[in-house]
Design a protein around this nucleic acid. Structure first.
Ligand SMILES: [Mn+2]
Ligand SMILES: [Mn+2]
Ligand SMILES: [Mn+2]
Ligand SMILES: [Mn+2]
Lengths: 165, 165
DNA sequence: TACATTTTATAGCCCGTGCTATATTATTTA
DNA sequence: TAAATAATATAGCACGGGCTATAAAATGTA
């Protein structure tokens, strides 16, 4: 294997670069909980009409006390609003974050499906992967999704659009 | 858009399934630090001969006190051994985890490169993504890498191997 | 309306992983 | 060898996000 070939097993990367990468991951983990919460809250509102703490807790797989505490933090951070004994709502800021998170989530899932991952695994892995995907990578994922969907369909090429009429 | 088509924007997934997915992510985050540490320690030993706390801290981008504390935990968990004022070593268990982590890390990086991500971003995103990639997805990544490397090279088909001699 | 059930709130705990500040020990250099 | 520098250890603090247990309020039902 020549030096320039893949999997550079030796030779550590630049220290500062590596440190920056790890820091980025840690930062992603900070925003991660917020992203998953607002995305879920938006989904609950859209489908059931409201987002109650119990449902949020149940779908996240945490104790309701944990969910309530986190919701309090999200309120502090201006992503969510909630009055005592009422359901949880998203602020404008929260809605925006939810939209972006959901879009990214779906792209990741679609991408995993496109490369042949099973539905269940795609859902599973996407829930973690999504938070570590840069804009550049997201764009590449979208390209793959488009390429795959074109390859699958019975050639809806330019010829087809010309054929109509 | 028909109901069975991509990006199911409405219709929440099964609650238990969704909860299980989130739990899986949380579990991954528990093992994540250990994986990154042992991988880095192995790299440092392989290239510089030893893994000192300062270097570990520097490359992880954390204060050395933080690194030392985590190293203590890894020792408790039997992944690492270290005596006071000496460098850090991997146990057999730690070496194994390092090997697996490194392999997975490289596959993820190679995969990102294969779909056209820049070197820097591939390194960046891989550091987080790696911890959320299941075996099934990893296998799919390897397929893509192989497919891409075949497509790129000037057709090293069976014909070529026949040509020699 | 009264009672039972569900939902929400709150307190108190644990653990991991950050940090700074302050010794102490090793190592390098003058 | 002595002093300066570097590396390590340790203490103490903060915060996030888990948990259980308990209390209070809201809601559903008899
Ligand atoms: Mn997620
Ligand atoms: Mn998500
Ligand atoms: Mn990593
Ligand atoms: Mn992660």
């Amino acid at each position: 294997m020549t030096k320039s070939e893949s999997s550079a097993s030796s030779a550590l990367p630049d220290a500062d670069q590596q440190a920056a990468n790890f820091k980025r991951v840690r930062e992603a983990h900070q925003s991660e909980v917020a992203e998953d919460y607002v995305e879920l809250i938006a989904d609950l509102i859209n489908t059931t009409g409201e987002a109650r703490a119990v449902d949020i807790a149940r779908r996240l797989g945490v104790a309701h006390a944990t969910a309530v505490k986190t919701i309090a933090r999200l309120q502090r951070e201006g992503l969510v609003s909630s009055q005592p004994y009422r359901a949880v709502f998203l602020t404008e800021k929260g809605r925006e974050l939810a939209v972006h998170s959901k879009r990214r989530h779906e792209i990741v899932v679609d991408f995993l499906r496109a490369i042949g991952i099973s539905e269940k695994t795609a859902q599973r892995d996407a829930e973690g992967i999504e938070h570590h995907v840069s804009e550049e990578t997201l764009a590449a994922f979208e390209r793959v999704i488009r390429a795959e969907s074109l390859a699958k369909k019975p050639r809806p090429t330019l010829a087809d659009s010309a054929k109509e009429k």
